[in-house]
Structures are given as structure tokens and as C-alpha cells.
Simulated assay, not measured.
Amino acid sequence: MAVSLRKLSLLTTMLGIAAVFYPGLAKADAVSDGVARATAVIDQYRKLPTFVAPGADFDIEATAKGKTMLSIPNTSANQFLKGIITREIAVGKEIGLKVQEWQNQGQPSQWVQGMDFAINNKISIVDLISGVNPAVVEPQMQAAKAAGVHVFASHFYDPSQPPDPLLAGNLPVSFYRQGWILGNWMIYKTGGHANAVIVKSDEVLPTAPLVQGIHDALAKNCPDCKISAEINVGITEWGTKIQPSVQSALLSHPKVNYVIPIYDSMSQFVVPAVRLSGKTGQVHIATSNGTPFVLDFIRNGDVEMDIGESLDWIARATIDGYMRELAGLPMPKEIGVPYYLFDASNVKTAGIPASANKGYGDDYVAGFKKVWEIK
């Protein structure tokens, strides 16, 4: 035993000397360990999602009977939200709930008009969906409550953020986790040498936790990774400011190898920016949401990866949560739609062209029908 201890002591001493005279070895180990951890994160989200019941079975058709719902997106130009609302309308027809969209161009005054419309027309439910900050329409929410209109928020808050107390209910989603996945994707793909430009919209409340997730992934798993620039663009300015801002950033930071538009509808302006900068093949795009036209970008080679969220699944989970509240049942603590990574290896499963309800399997459709007691 004494001999073994002496050998162990000698080995420890030799490793210590090596670390002093060859610091690159320790750094290489830190990089490879970080890449291994990042790879493990990515592997979790390559598995086809499975359905988990959001609560007890209930008769959703009885609850929905005679009810109406108005969905107000932050802007009707956002194709991710447009896709969700399209599916909400379709799912509503399945269960007897009349759903319509409040068309708008991203102006808070238009959200106010939508709320007033709901109150004046005795709409049962207002769905403030992903980007409409309830704080902006608090006077209207107070009037809605007095009028018996239930105002909900979906896909807007991160679970770490307290919802507006005037809401009848809230279905948050982990935006932080989306950022965590995006950060680890870059580490995984670059072998621990990511250099990124982030495109964001700080006016959208969950932007902060999402971007923090990216920073935390790099801080934990990538000593050599870097964020060269963060570009903040307001929602109504995406069409005019994202492209020139990204082009300028790529020219100013020639070593950048990733652009991260945190909401994938931004990609329609990032793709031409990369192309016009002459960076195709050098600068990659990774994003989140799973909007069908962005999945088509993957198939065409313009976007590398998108964190998919089935728009049909989101629509069903949203309506499920709201109907549970109206039925006097507990709402889920989160929207409960799992993430699934799309890249060139599996994007064709989403259809050609991509569809809002393909690529995720159909387990969830049967699952919701069961919990809704639909024969």
C-alpha cells in the first residue's frame, strides 16, 4: 500500500508540474470537457417528443360550448404567432370554440383596440399571445374582468418571471432553456470556439432570460467562446433594421461564425444579411421557435438549426390550459410543449414545404383527444 501511495504522490506531482509548464493541456481539457457537456445537452433534444397529460381528463366540448376567444399577437407579421393562431382556429372548430385573430401591426394602441373589441362584443377569452405585454393593457384588463372577460397570457413569460396579477391565468414557457440550448449548440458545432452575434428585441419581456441562457451556456461550457455583438431591434423595425445591422456587425467582427436571431421569424432578415456579407458557409444561423418557413430555410441550407416547438401542439396546449381554468380545474404551471431540434438530418420530416404540425409525431394529438374525452 505504501508503494502505491508513493506512486500516486509522484503522479500527482508530475501532473502539477505539467500544468505549470504546459498550461495549454489544462485549457484543452477544459475545452473538451465543455464540449462534452454541451453535446450531452444537445442529445437530449434530438429525441422525438412524447406527450405528457397536462392534467386530469375533462369534457372540453362541454366547457367550450358557446364560448369565443380572441387571440391578440404582438404583431400579425410574426409568422410563428400567425401559425399558432391558425392552429387555434382549427382546434377550436374541433371542440366547438370560436377563435379569431385581432389583426395588428405591433402598435400597443392596436392591442388596446383589440381589448376594447373583446369587451364590447362580450368575448369569453382574450389570448395575449407571445409578445403582448399585459402591463401595457392593464386598464383594459381591469375593464375586461369587470365585464366577465377572461384575459390569459400564453408563451410570453419565462417561469422565472411573475405574471401580471390581473391575468385570469398564465401559461409560461422556458425561454431561458431555449437560450441554454442555443449556446450549447454553438459550443457543440464549433468544438468550443464559437464567436457569435445575437439579434434580440429587449422590449419583449422574455428576451432577457433567453439571452441569459446563451451567456450562461458559454460561461459554463466554453472558455474560448465569445459574443462579439448583441443587436437590439424593436419588433416593428425588424424589416428595416435587422439586415443592415447584421451586415455591419459581420464586417466589424470578421471572426464571427454564428448569428443567433433569438426568435426565428427574424431569420428572414438575417439570411440575406449573411449572404450579402459574403459569409455564406462561414457564418451559421441557429435560432428557436420552429416556424415552418424557417424549417424550409434549413432544408435549403440557409439556416443550420431551429429549436422546434410544434405550433399545433402549442395551440392545443394553450386552449387546454384556458379551458381547464374555465372548468374550475388547475392550469398547468407551464405550457408543456417539448423542444425538438431540427437540422439538415431530420428537417424533411416536417414536410416539403414544412408544416406547423409535422415532424413531431402524432402522439400528442391522440393524447389531447383522450384527456379532452373526445371519442
Rank of each mutant, 00 (worst) to 15 (best):
N184S: 08
N232W: 07
P73Y: 00
L276I: 06
Q140Y: 08
P163N: 09
I231G: 12
G55V: 05
A19D: 04
A77T: 12
Y263W: 14
P272W: 03
L295N: 12
P162H: 03
G191V: 14
A64C: 03
I181E: 01
T86P: 00
K145G: 15
S32M: 08
L128H: 02
I187R: 08
N184Q: 03
F368V: 07
V283S: 01
W111R: 08
E309Q: 15
P209N: 05
A147E: 09
I260F: 09
I123K: 02
E309M: 15
T68V: 03
S32K: 07
G367W: 14
M305C: 11
T287P: 06
G321N: 12
L48D: 08
W372T: 04
P159E: 05
S160M: 07
E138V: 13
Q113K: 12
T75R: 01
K375S: 10
F368P: 13
L11K: 03
V294M: 07
R316E: 06
T240N: 11
I335V: 13
G83W: 00
E237Q: 11
S265P: 07
D264W: 09
L11V: 11
L295D: 10
A19V: 03
V197K: 06
T240Q: 14
P23R: 02
M331G: 04
V259I: 12
I374H: 14
K145T: 09
L210T: 01
V270Y: 11
P206L: 04
L341N: 09
E304M: 11
I123L: 09
S201V: 13
A273I: 02
M186H: 00
Q79G: 05
M186D: 02
E138Q: 13
P54I: 15
E61C: 14
A18C: 08
S71C: 11
L218H: 00
K145N: 14
K93V: 06
V149R: 10
A219N: 13
A26E: 06
Y360I: 01
W111T: 09
F80L: 06
K65F: 00
N289R: 02
